[in-house]
């Protein structure tokens, strides 16, 4: 279950927005080759953490390690080129470009630069089931397909680690299952996946390790069945006081 050395290590990371401590001394490690999830109630700091890891926001304290390189303080572009891709919660396609060109831009600028672009694009479209929509303009896609495009474009950058920010938000159960299938396939292709997701059933079904955030701090970590039984997690979600 637990694979090799950590590909991503978040060590004592904090982020303060003016007075608010959005992320409070959070540490965790994502093993290479796994699918891990980050869960927590709204406002727990999950998206902030993604923003910190990808260099979108500067840290207030702590460090982020990618394999054995310290990456906090590096620019977004540099971090992306090391092999960390991100799929946004609110899909941000390049609206006036075709699906294929969206994915092609990922392939042209990802980790390995413009190599085998055509086949990378083809594979990414196939993986996400977008091959038949390749010529369509991105802003004409439905929400479900936009999420797939988001994943396809991220995969095309040939990342080692994919940060997927709520890829199933607003989708129906069938679509959610399809997205989970795509994520499993992405992992099978050798990409580590860190997922933020609200759909507990999906998270429990796919994750090897789950990290739980509440009010900016990590309150639990472990395999799905242990997390499901953890009283602090239940309390955080149900708002009841924690026992012991």
């Amino acid at each position: 279950m637990s694979a090799g050395a950590p590909i991503l290590r978040v060590a004592g990371v904090s982020k303060r927005f003016r007075g608010l401590l959005a992320v409070n001394d959070v540490s965790f490690a994502v093993p290479e080759g796994s699918i891990c999830s980050l869960i927590g109630p709204n406002g727990a700091g999950k998206s902030s953490l993604f923003n910190l890891v990808t260099g979108y926001l500067p840290l207030t304290a702590g460090a982020v390690w990618f394999r054995d390189r310290r990456i906090d303080g590096q620019g977004t572009t540099a971090i992306s080129r090391m092999g960390i891709a991100r799929a946004f919660q609110i899909a941000k396609p390049f609206p006036e470009l075709s699906v294929r060109d969206n994915v092609r831009i990922g392939a042209l600028f990802g980790r390995e630069g413009p190599r085998d672009v055509a086949s990378v694009v083809r594979d990414a479209l196939q993986l996400t089931g977008l091959s038949d929509h390749a010529g369509q303009q991105a802003n004409s896609l439905t929400v479900g397909f936009l999420r797939r495009l988001e994943l396809a474009r991220a995969v095309a950058t040939r990342p080692a680690l994919l940060l997927a920010d709520e890829p199933c938000a607003g989708l129906n159960p069938t679509e959610t299952e399809e997205i989970m299938g795509i994520l499993r396939q992405i992992r099978a292709n050798g990409v580590t996946v860190l997922l933020v997701e609200h759909d507990m059933r999906a998270v429990m079904g796919i994750s090897e390790t789950i990290f739980v955030l509440d009010a900016g701090a990590k309150i639990a970590e472990g395999p799905p069945d242990a997390i499901a039984r953890d009283p602090r997690v239940v309390a955080a979600y149900l708002g009841a006081p924690a026992e012991g």
């Binding site: 990808t54 979108y56 620019g75 977004t76 572009t77 992306s80 080129r81 891709a85 991100r86 946004f88 941000k92 390049f94 609206p95 006036e96 470009l97 060109d101 092609r104 831009i105 990922g106 042209l108 600028f109 990802g110 980790r111 474009r153 950058t157």
Partner: peptide, 20 residues
């Protein structure tokens, strides 16, 4: 392609590794 991605969404372009 990089320039077009900047036109469409500069922040996302940066996220994809485009040296904007």
């Amino acid at each position: 392609y990089g320039l077009v991605s900047i036109r469409e969404d500069e922040d996302t372009a940066r996220m994809l590794g485009v040296p904007t």
